[in-house]
Amino acid sequence: MTSPLLSRPGAVAVQSDPGGAVTGSVAAHYGEPLPEQRRAAEGVVLVDRSDRDVVAVPGPDRLSWLHSLTSQHLERLPDGAGTEALVLSPHGHVEHHVVVADLAGTTWLDTEPGAGTELAGWLDRMRFMLRVEPALVTDAWAVLTLVGPRTDDVLAAAGLPRPAEPYEVQATDGGGWVRRMPPLGDGVPTVDLLVPRAAVADRADALLGAGAVLAGVDALAALAVEAHRPRLGADSDHRTIPNETPWLSTAVHLEKGCYRGQETVARVHNLGRPPRRLVLVHLDGMSEQLPPPGTPVTAGAREVGRLGTVVRHHELGVVGLALLKSATLEKEPLPELRAGETVVVVDPDDLVVTTDDTVLAARERVRAVRSATIGR
């Protein structure tokens, strides 16, 4: 479904979603990719994320049922609260990532574009005799996101609630809600809004009239990369386990057992060393084309990981997320890494190091990469 906001001046559609779903339904940007990022970091922007899939789960057994199926502790989730959760394979590999909101007898799960059909189908097959009615409702509901230090001012001016704590959810007129999310970028406030799809244009106009400025999903992606916020399918692959990513702290309850894949999560957590780690990397930026998600990262002739989302950041230059082998990250000195012909340097703050010399050398390499980045 093409968003009505894609007809706004300057809109350039997303042609291929990093998670693998070809969308063309929302804007990558509105003609000013880097200024849109700056507005998000310094003011407030409205990002159209109506390509995200939405699954609604009403029914009195919904929370205990979802608790048994996912990595998160949902059984006693209060009304007006949210969280994140994963669906894992029997071997602990991440199959689905959802952001949760529970309000007035319905649990809402929003997930990556194109992932909702498979998720809703799997949930339907797992109902058995329980009182739950999972349904894909993307046709009826859409997600919008406000990002920026002035987010609360815009919500107040638009007459919308202002949840205070991360994942707090408050109802809006028409059955939708506002959900506070953890900050992006360097502590940038973020809220999601669930809006009736027929009201997307009207809600957007109200928010724009209250002081927000339109920005595309590329601006959101840049701040998400800076915050080490992975996306399923772009920053993960079929072998990814939660322990390799920040999802271990945001979407996994480590004291909860008896869910599919739990044994792998617990074993790797107790060992304290996952096979790979998600890290921020700096790229030389010499090519006009950014490497796509899944591009192998090599050290000499050896493949040591994969790139995920790569963006042109308004301050950091060309950066991305990468899943790299823990053994590689622990080497001193760190070997030279490449993605094809592109030089890849791990951000010093993400290195596992024991000597100051290693940190200083990594920082010098980051400076050299940034100086070669387009637009720096």
Rank of each mutant, 00 (worst) to 15 (best):
G10R: 04
A11H: 00
V12P: 04
V14S: 02
P18I: 03
G19I: 07
G20L: 11
G20C: 13
T23L: 12
G24A: 01
A27P: 04
H29V: 08
H29N: 14
G31P: 09
G31S: 08
L34S: 06
E36Y: 06
Q37S: 11
A41R: 14
G43E: 15
V44M: 05
L46Y: 04
R49P: 09
R49K: 11
D53P: 04
D53H: 03
V57C: 15
V57L: 15
P60D: 15
P60Q: 13
R62F: 06
R62V: 08
W65Q: 00
L66G: 00
H67W: 03
H73K: 13
H73V: 07
E75T: 07
E75Y: 07
L77N: 13
L77C: 15
D79E: 15
D79N: 15
E84P: 08
E84R: 14
L86N: 13
L86E: 13
V87Y: 12
S89H: 08
P90D: 09
P90Y: 09
G92D: 06
V94R: 07
V94W: 01
H96C: 01
V98K: 03
A101E: 00
D102L: 04
L103N: 00
A104C: 02
G105N: 11
T106K: 02
E112A: 15
G114D: 00
G116E: 13
T117L: 14
T117N: 04
E118G: 11
E118L: 04
A120C: 04
A120G: 02
W122I: 01
W122A: 04
D124G: 15
R125Q: 14
R127T: 03
R127S: 00
R127W: 01
F128V: 05
F128C: 00
F128K: 01
F128I: 06
M129H: 10
R131S: 15
V132P: 06
E133Y: 02
V137Y: 07
D139Y: 01
D139N: 08
A140T: 13
A142N: 09
V143F: 10
L144T: 06
T145G: 00
